[in-house]
Amino acid sequence: MIPLDALLTEALPFWEGLSPQEQQLLLDTAVPSTIPKGTITHRADQDCKGIMLVLAGQLRAYILSEEGREVTLYRVQGGDTCVMSSSCLMDAIVFDVLIQAMEDTQVVTLPVTALSALSQRHPEVELFLYKTASERFSDIMWTMQQILFMGMDRRAAIFLWDEYTRQGPVLSMTHEEMARYIGSAREVVTKVLKYFAQEGIVSLRRGKITILDKEKLRQLAG
């Protein structure tokens, strides 16, 4: 495993600007952990934890309507940083999301106590938090644009194409899981996937979606 100081050097652009004592503070308080698949690691009613550096796996940030419908806002994968779990450090951002591990996910959490002290002495720490948060809000706006202005077939095609480029032609995923990712109902996703299957774009098996014609899928994704 990569040493923790090397991980922080790569992940935190402000690392080199910290004093040796401040660097040691982060090293001493950083908490490596593995979040089991399905675990909700952040809720609006929980205490703020800090930022999470994702080493491997995948986290999903989503909102939940009063009727229980889930809308995935964005996903964070290995090499990315999840800052929404540290929103209490950013007074201008009030955004209640849930964060769930979509597979067993290895993270390093930098706690609020250490980050808060550093941000008061180093403006670049606060700048890093806001810059990373703004990137996530860009992802959220893209998601909202898809939901509001795109047809369901194109949204499904974009999602499948992104998954194809990430993990290959065989996707281990139920229709219910895909519906949560793209903010739709399972019945609607099933209908679209059946249409894709009729067109020879995918084949469907229980818990699996296999991409058969990537060119057709790419054209649908636009």
Rank of each mutant, 00 (worst) to 15 (best):
V76S: 04
V83S: 03
M84E: 15
M84Y: 08
S85K: 04
S87Q: 13
S87N: 10
C88Q: 13
L89G: 06
D91I: 11
F95I: 01
F95N: 01
D96A: 12
V97S: 04
Q100F: 03
Q100V: 05
A101S: 08
M102P: 03
M102G: 00
E103R: 12
D104G: 07
Q106S: 10
V107Q: 01
P111W: 03
P111F: 01
S116N: 14
A117L: 14
L118Q: 09
L118F: 13
L118H: 03
S119Q: 14
Q120G: 13
Q120M: 13
R121K: 15
H122Q: 07
E126Q: 13
L127W: 11
F128H: 01
L129F: 00
T132S: 06
T132F: 04
A133N: 06
A133C: 13
E135Q: 14
F137D: 03
D139R: 04
D139A: 15
M141V: 06
I147T: 02
I147G: 02
L148Y: 08
F149G: 05
R155Y: 08
R155V: 14
R155K: 12
A157N: 06
A157D: 12
F159P: 00
F159V: 06
L160K: 04
W161V: 12
D162R: 05
Y164E: 08
R166Q: 09
Q167C: 13
G168K: 08
P169D: 11
S172N: 13
S172Y: 08
M173I: 12
